[in-house]
Computed example of a mutant assay.
Amino acid sequence: MDRWYWCNSSLTSGEVVSTTVNGIRLYDGDKKTGYDDGRLTLTNHRLLWRHETQSSSLGLHLSLVVLVEEEAGSFTSSPKLLLHLAQPPHSQPAGPVAASSNSFIKLSFKHGGYSSFHQVLQKAIDNHGWEKAPSLPCNYGKQPGGKAIHTGILGIERAIQAKQEETNQNISHAFEDLKNLMGLAKDMVSLSKSISNKIKERSGDVSADDTTQFRSYLLSLGIDDPVTREAFGSETQYHHNLAKEITQALEDPVKEAGGVMLLSEVYCRINRARGLQLLSPEDVMHACHVMKKLGLSLNLHTFESGVQVVQITGLDQEKVVEATVEVLNCHEVDGVSAGDLARDCGMPLLLAQERLLQAEQCAKAVRDESSEGLRFFPNLFFSRS
């Protein structure tokens, strides 16, 4: 309420009434005030509120209005207009409140009409009629000394535009730095390969394990020359070379994961290794489909449930089932859920569930469905037959 000031109801030079509405109550933020059931007049310069028993009016200059929002009513409350306001100038006349902790007010419309009033109010704010003819002796929109401050919608638009220009410049500089960084990264990967080869050729001081670990650290910088669609004349060649790149980059991680990796994880890992040269899910899918045809060390496998994984070529499924059965045998009494297997073997939950179902299909496991969920047990009937 500290943005309102006491004034008479007479219009100033150049001021024209736009619309008038009755039954308006004023709010200070979300708090009701005693200024109820008044007549609200909108001019091209101000909002004027006056109760019929009062001789003076409360005025609010439109240059202080930053944003107007509608607040729908309910069974117990009237619809309202929420006005976000800028700080008033020091030269503003006295008002009903010296200072307020709220930066917005509300206008409650008991008899409706708030949407149409909102439209007229927004039009008056956009027209900036107060700039064409000053309505009050105080210098609204100016600081002491004559320096203009940008208030209202125009000021916000100018501030946003300036911020956008600054952001665009920062983004341009950032991309220039990123290009330089990408160039340095390629040099670093090439250097890492050269150093790794030289260390591997040396004998004596450096062990094979140290050499392997050093190479792993350096090559984790990423793929130095990723396959791109523009480098090949056809989709087939592109996907064939992409399949080779995925195999080369992920063969060791797949082995470390037990020989099987979910296709979703393959997609995430290869894109992380490629940096800005990102692949679409369709390209990764097509590349994985041709792995078996090309005789690569990785290939795509689809479970009966439809879950797809990339696995080591020639992976012995019987050994995978036996490894799952070993875990079941360790929990013969309580059984094993997919979450238990995932936690014990360090694998994704979805893959753990597929392994339990695979063991069940091979008659090595049986299931127990209860209110506690789905658990698997070793098939003792099969083992004792």
Results as ranks from 00 to 15, higher is better:
residue 357 L to V: 02
residue 329 N to M: 10
residue 315 L to T: 04
residue 373 G to A: 07
residue 359 A to H: 00
residue 337 S to N: 04
residue 316 D to I: 04
residue 326 E to G: 09
residue 335 G to M: 09
residue 315 L to S: 05
residue 360 E to Y: 00
residue 358 Q to D: 05
residue 314 G to M: 09
residue 365 A to H: 02
residue 362 C to R: 10
residue 358 Q to Y: 03
residue 364 K to E: 15
residue 314 G to S: 10
residue 354 E to M: 04
residue 324 T to R: 07
residue 338 A to F: 03
residue 314 G to R: 15
residue 368 D to W: 07
residue 347 M to E: 06
residue 309 V to T: 12
residue 366 V to G: 07
residue 309 V to Q: 08
residue 372 E to S: 02
residue 367 R to S: 15
residue 360 E to C: 01
residue 317 Q to L: 05
residue 321 V to S: 02
residue 314 G to H: 09
residue 355 R to F: 12
residue 373 G to C: 06
residue 355 R to T: 04
residue 317 Q to Y: 01
residue 325 V to F: 04
residue 374 L to E: 13
residue 338 A to L: 03
residue 326 E to S: 15
residue 348 P to H: 13
residue 369 E to M: 06
residue 325 V to R: 02
residue 322 E to I: 03
residue 353 Q to L: 01
residue 335 G to Q: 09
residue 348 P to D: 14
residue 370 S to Y: 10
residue 339 G to M: 07
residue 352 A to D: 00
residue 313 T to M: 06
residue 338 A to P: 03
residue 369 E to I: 09
residue 329 N to H: 10
residue 333 V to K: 14
residue 362 C to H: 12
residue 338 A to W: 00
residue 334 D to Q: 14
residue 337 S to A: 08
residue 346 G to D: 12
residue 365 A to E: 03
residue 320 V to A: 14
residue 371 S to M: 07
residue 364 K to F: 10
residue 330 C to M: 10
residue 356 L to H: 13
residue 342 A to S: 15
residue 362 C to Q: 08
residue 363 A to Y: 11
residue 323 A to E: 11
residue 358 Q to F: 05
residue 341 L to K: 07
residue 328 L to W: 10
residue 341 L to W: 08
residue 330 C to N: 14
residue 372 E to V: 02
residue 372 E to G: 00
residue 357 L to N: 03
residue 362 C to V: 05
residue 343 R to H: 15
residue 314 G to A: 10
residue 325 V to Q: 04
residue 370 S to T: 13
residue 345 C to E: 15
residue 346 G to W: 12
residue 311 Q to Y: 01
residue 310 V to F: 03
residue 322 E to A: 05
residue 340 D to V: 07
residue 315 L to Y: 03
residue 332 E to C: 12
residue 315 L to R: 08
residue 313 T to S: 15
residue 346 G to C: 08
residue 334 D to R: 06
residue 350 L to F: 01
residue 324 T to Y: 07
residue 358 Q to R: 11
residue 341 L to P: 06
residue 343 R to E: 15
residue 374 L to C: 11
residue 367 R to T: 15
residue 359 A to C: 00
residue 313 T to P: 05
residue 369 E to S: 06
residue 367 R to A: 13
residue 367 R to M: 14
residue 368 D to L: 13
residue 324 T to P: 09
residue 373 G to V: 08
residue 314 G to D: 13
residue 369 E to K: 10
residue 321 V to I: 13
residue 310 V to W: 01
residue 345 C to M: 13
residue 358 Q to A: 06
residue 326 E to F: 09
residue 332 E to Q: 11
residue 313 T to R: 11
residue 353 Q to C: 00
residue 316 D to F: 04
residue 323 A to Q: 10
residue 374 L to S: 13
residue 315 L to D: 05
residue 343 R to Y: 11
residue 320 V to N: 07
residue 339 G to E: 13
residue 348 P to F: 11
residue 368 D to M: 12
residue 365 A to L: 03
residue 363 A to F: 12
residue 360 E to P: 00
residue 371 S to N: 05
residue 372 E to P: 02
residue 315 L to H: 04
residue 369 E to G: 03
residue 357 L to T: 02
